[in-house]
């Protein structure tokens, strides 16, 4: 299941400042896009608009060609999953954190439990299932947050610096795992990152944001230059990631 998300003539102001100004942006069905740009460029805000959590001042958002209005926003939100910059977990156990959202989206009890088990296993947090979310380390909660999003089997996955709290080996294995998952499910994905070395593991498509605008969009090589694609320049100690994946 995949979907296409697009915005047209979007403008968003906050405290008298223009924070987003995007004429046209399309996230194609099955596409995986990395979003980069300096602090305060508007990446997180764009993600929240795309996640249908922030209603822009003007502009049209369409999911699979259908314009989002108040009446269909909830149904549309249930096709998306968001991983925020901080892993915002409910104050309950790891297992319930993954299971409750599924129940909220109308997944039956047995199926919800089955999927919860599956995704806890895939993200290596099965041993934490009974732990309170508050007692987790940063990396453990980030994994829980990612497991929660993937268990929802969304048509579109939106992630805001999902790996920032992870140590290098964890990040590397999670990136590889996520790359596999995204390419087998062909899940449409947009993710924000400051760490360019993460990009080749997932995709070659990059958008650059600056001052509320998308100023560049295209192949990682054209945008970051030849050296950026070689993971060697970011993680010279790591041989495995040299080639990256994702033909785009």
């Amino acid at each position: 299941m995949t979907a296409e998300l697009s915005i047209t003539q979007l403008k968003l102001r906050r405290s008298g400042r223009e924070i987003l100004d995007i004429d046209r942006f399309v996230l194609d069905s099955g596409e995986i896009l990395a979003v980069i740009g300096p602090n305060g460029a508007g990446k997180s805000t764009l993600l929240q608009v795309l996640a249908l959590l922030l209603v822009p001042d003007t502009g049209i958002i369409e999911l699979n060609g259908e314009m989002i209005v108040n009446g269909n926003r909830l149904a549309a939100r249930r096709k998306l999953a968001v991983v925020f910059q901080e892993s915002l977990l409910l104050d309950t156990t790891v297992q319930k954190n993954i299971e409750i959202p599924l129940r909220i989206r109308g997944v039956g009890r047995t199926e919800a439990i089955r999927r919860t088990r599956e995704w806890m296993a895939r993200l290596g947090i099965t041993h934490l299932s009974g732990r309170r979310a508050r007692s987790l380390s940063g990396g453990e909660s980030q994994r829980t947050s990612i497991a929660r999003a993937l268990a929802m089997q969304p048509e579109i996955l939106l992630m805001d610096e999902p790996f920032s709290a992870l140590d290098y080996p964890t990040r590397k294995s999670l990136l590889a795992e996520l790359g596999d998952i995204l390419h087998t499910t062909r899940m449409t994905t947009i993710f924000v990152t400051h760490d360019f070395s993460e990009i080749p593991a997932l995709t070659r498509q990059v958008a650059v944001m600056f001052d509320g605008r998308i100023i560049k969009r295209g192949n990682i090589q054209d945008i970051l230059g030849e050296t950026a694609v070689s993971v060697r320049s970011w993680a010279p100690w790591d041989e495995d990631m040299e080639d990256g994946r994702g033909a785009g």
Binding site: Q48, L53, L74, L88, P101, I104, R105
Partner: peptide
């Protein structure tokens, strides 16, 4: 409560009651 937590709860696809 963390205001971002409120956004996250909405992002789960909750109805107003949920």
């Amino acid at each position: 409560l963390n205001p971002k937590m409120l956004l996250q709860i909405q992002a789960l696809g909750t109805t107003r009651f949920q």
